[in-house]
Design a protein around this nucleic acid. Structure first.
Length: 301
DNA sequence: CAGTCGCCCTGCTGGC
DNA sequence: TGCCAGCAGGGCGACT
């Protein structure tokens, strides 16, 4: 469930722990350790060897991806998938290993000293194993595997006018388009439903049939809700999303539609409904978010 | 080429 | 009590 706000919380935590540090040692842990680096084409052993001794210069993010810019221009690209977590441990990491631990990095102060920093470890945990890391040559600015991902709503260079135009050219339902990371990145199921609720738009309205003004307000709503979620430390329903210190965010208390089936719409009081769409759940207010606009406006050919 | 769909995976929950 | 279906769902590859 990590979407943009959750990944940004993680990025900030990793930046504080990794920037200016050297990766002194890399462990792939257990049966699923190698799986966590499956996107590294040269294989698990190469990943470990290639990463060891590298110095992290910066931690960057686009949409739901984050990457560590290394001082030689390469990058370590990471995606949390459904359940990936980074944990920074500065002391006491001799406790029993977490069952979902896949990768453990031992840090040292840069320039690389002969001894690993005794107390600083970065762990990658992943229950459902959809996430993972890989090393991308020359990827510090923007790793090639994610070059097709569009800028996200919190990117200073995000082009709202361009995004509105792109969305309105798509022959598909609006939620499908919002979830398409090549159109705008960072939005997942939770924030898509929240933005649609905020803008009073049904998830299956054809994107091409929406006015530029409606699409604009939808983007603004998505940006607003993700900024608010970021301030709240992200959305946590369970133990699957936490920050690098293992703490939950509390934005789930502020959700208006997602996960609220049966509860009254905070705006009009009608019960929020859960429907299946794209093999996922969609939550909406049937009164505020009608599939057909009130005027009927049937543009049937 | 744009759009759609199935699959990857683990762990928890609910029904019988 | 135990078993299994269903659910959670981001992203990619394979189709139409």
């Amino acid at each position: 469930m990590p979407e943009l706000p959750e990944v940004e919380v993680v990025r900030r935590g990793l930046a504080a722990a990794l920037t200016g540090r050297c990766i002194a040692a890399v462990e792939l842990v257990g049966r699923h350790g190698p799986r966590a680096v499956r996107r590294h084409a040269a294989g698990p052993a190469d990943f470990v060897a290639a990463l060891t001794g590298r110095v992290v210069e910066d931690v960057r993010r686009r949409g739901k991806y984050l990457w560590w810019a290394l001082d030689d221009g390469d990058a370590v690209l990471a995606h949390l998938g459904m359940s990936g977590q980074f944990r920074v441990l500065t002391a006491g990491h001799d406790q029993p290993q977490h069952p979902h631990l896949r990768i453990r990095l031992h840090l040292a102060e840069a320039p690389a000293g002969p001894e690993p920093h005794p107390d600083t470890v970065v762990d990658f945990l992943d229950q459902r194993t959809f996430g993972g890391l890989c090393l991308v040559a020359g990827g510090a600015e923007l790793p090639a595997p994610i070059a097709h991902i569009a800028r996200d709503l919190l990117d200073p260079e995000f082009d709202r006018t361009l995004a509105v135009r792109t969305i309105r050219r798509r022959e598909s339902g609006i939620k499908r388009v919002l979830l398409d990371q090549s159109v705008i990145s960072g939005i997942g199921n939770i924030y898509a439903d929240e933005a649609l609720w905020q803008a009073r738009v049904h998830y299956d309205r054809p994107a091409a049939g929406l006015s530029a003004r409606t699409v604009g307000s939808l983007l603004d709503a998505a940006g607003d809700v993700m900024r608010a979620a970021l301030e709240a430390g992200g959305t946590s329903f369970d133990a699957l999303y936490v920050n690098v210190n293992g703490q939950s965010g509390y934005f789930d208390r502020s959700l208006n539609a997602y996960g609220q089936a049966g509860k009254p719409c905070p705006r009009c009081g009608a019960p929020i409904r859960r429907e299946r769409f794209m093999n996922r759940s969609s939550f909406l207010c049937p009164r505020c978010q009608p599939l057909l606009s009130a005027s009927g406006r049937g543009r049937r050919a």
